[in-house]
């Protein structure tokens, strides 16, 4: 067992390190954020344990990594996790300020659409693709769902998975 604070515990196994992350302290978007930063350095797998924690497995790309390198990953990942968790909180708190500055910066730089831009614009009323969830509010994107919504989502997932 690698020595880390109680809210993140890490175990070394063959060629990989497993971290158990307390979701009370590190919300899921923070775990996703930190994991995303590591996918070019490691193979990253997420699981849930029976106690509500998320188990993050960081598997070295090198099949025979030095133990020291794996241990370094724990520290590095923990730092990124903390940074993402704090950013998650700050973003929620400063959302209006960040949105105002971002939209002004982008709108100012892009300017109004030209006739060429409008020629290729989709004027149909169909929904548009929004893979990053830019058009969603924070609550829609990351907020907790009520039980009815969760049940609905699980049902939808069942169908999707059965394709």
């Amino acid at each position: 067992m690698h020595q880390t604070p109680h809210n993140v515990t890490a175990e070394l196994e063959e060629g990989a390190i497993r971290l158990r992350v307390d979701r009370e302290i590190y919300p899921l978007p923070a775990i996703y954020g930190a994991s995303y930063v590591f996918i070019d350095r490691c193979f990253v797998f997420l699981e849930r344990d029976g106690e509500g924690r998320v188990v993050v497995t960081l598997q070295a790309r090198d099949p025979n990594p030095a133990e020291e390198a794996l241990r370094a990953l724990v520290g590095e990942f923990s730092n990124e996790l903390l940074s993402c968790a704090w950013r998650h909180q700050i973003t929620a708190e400063n959302r209006h300020l960040i949105e105002a500055v971002t939209s002004q910066a982008l709108a100012g730089a892009m300017g109004p659409p030209s006739l060429d831009d409008l020629a290729s614009f989709d004027f149909t009323s169909d929904g548009f693709e929004d893979p990053l969830g830019i058009a969603q509010s924070w609550e829609e994107k990351h907020g907790r769902k009520n039980k009815a919504q969760e049940a609905g989502a699980a049902g939808a997932g069942e169908e999707e998975g059965g394709r």
Binding site: R61, L132, K145, A153
Partner: peptide
Amino acid sequence: RIVGELGNYALARTIERGGAL
């Protein structure tokens, strides 16, 4: 390696979609 990359792909696309649900 193939399993690792496939796992990364699934995770990255999940995150890019804004999460699992």
